[in-house]
Design a protein around this nucleic acid. Sequence first.
DNA 1: CGCCCTATTGATCAGCCTCAATGAGAGTGG
DNA 2: CCACTCTCATTGAGGCTGATCAATAGGGCG
Lengths: 221, 221
Amino acid sequence: MQVVALKSSPFSPIHQAPDEQARPAPFAGEPMGVRMHFDRDEEIFGEDEPAQYVYRVLSGAVRTTRMLSDGRRQIVEFHVPGDVFGLDGETRHALGAEAVGDTVLQVVRRSAFMSGGIDGGDTAVQALLKKFHRAQAHMLLLGRHTACERVAAFLLDFQNRSAGSTVDLPMSRQDIADYLGLTIETVSRTFTQLQAADLIDLESCRRVILRNVAALQRICE
Amino acid sequence: MQVVALKSSPFSPIHQAPDEQARPAPFAGEPMGVRMHFDRDEEIFGEDEPAQYVYRVLSGAVRTTRMLSDGRRQIVEFHVPGDVFGLDGETRHALGAEAVGDTVLQVVRRSAFMSGGIDGGDTAVQALLKKFHRAQAHMLLLGRHTACERVAAFLLDFQNRSAGSTVDLPMSRQDIADYLGLTIETVSRTFTQLQAADLIDLESCRRVILRNVAALQRICE
DNA sequence: CGCCCTATTGATCAGCCTCAATGAGAGTGG
DNA sequence: CCACTCTCATTGAGGCTGATCAATAGGGCG
């Protein structure tokens, strides 16, 4: 239901009410744009929809995806707090975007972002350069890495984007599989193998402790 | 030897002499920047080198690559006449770039490109958006497509970038394999299969005639 | 406590890779 | 002009990684 409202206008009151003052702004200054909340698996925008807005994650996580008609899905990127997304495509979104878990976003008009960026974030060109850079690394991963290398790189990437040796994964195994171009079974098996080799510890299926970061890095080369 | 000269200064006379007036500018107006020639397999810039210049292909073709220490290579993109490249990375190149065949480039300083683009080409943001879009499509290809789908998509892509049903491939099978995340043998076998199915005709190994575009598109979904 | 959804584990299979040999084409030198 | 060579492409045989199909286990929530 929120999705429908979003498509017509993300500035609809229904979206800002829940947590407008519930969480403090995670960056200095008065934020521009509007804050919006999304539930788990709720669509933020769909493929081919007009690209009117640019988003910045305040809390939670977002996946941007591309689907094939037969159901195969590629997750292009996970976006965590601080990340900007919605820049795919020039006038229409080339990707779909969904909330991975409960997520709060900051929304600005695309035109405003292009001229000034988002408070506390990058300018349009900086943001695009970073995304392009990450996209290149992801291509290398998908094109030329083994399952084990992909999972190790994924864990190290998430560790860098959080902090410490404990990694809390906001997404399901299916999401990880669709991000790494693998099946859920292969991802699960690889986690188990890494645990057996004492490289990681699975405290729960969403909480991973990196026991041997150097060895994980060696796997990725 | 030209490479060495390039690294110190692409405005060295050695680079512009050969074809400064040999080929007319393929777009209206006096081109900005300097024209440079590269031989087959000659390096244009290497990974991690300072990113001082932005390039536009005038003739020939360029591949941008990422290497792993064990020799595995991913070709991120092929650039044909009209394409801009060299925007990878913010201050240093994240990719290497090499000429696929004899190639003529137009070179401008990065700062000049960022403020004004290249004559007859896109602005910085437009160019980045297009590249990001293509990168997404390539990720889907690498992550979720079969060998047959990858080769079909590759041929259709090159047909769109040239014209007519005859596709002249400037690159070797090894280049195609490294672009599609396959081996040279699998690429070759797939070409043979497509020919056996009357979808393509291999006039020579570099010249492909698309006999059934609709069927090729159906393969890619 | 029981249900449902997700994750894990097992067994088998297929697609692609690897290794190896042959074939075709371009360039070189006699 | 032709033989030679070198490189690249094609084809074949067999193995391995990861996919598929199937069953079990765990975990959150009513």
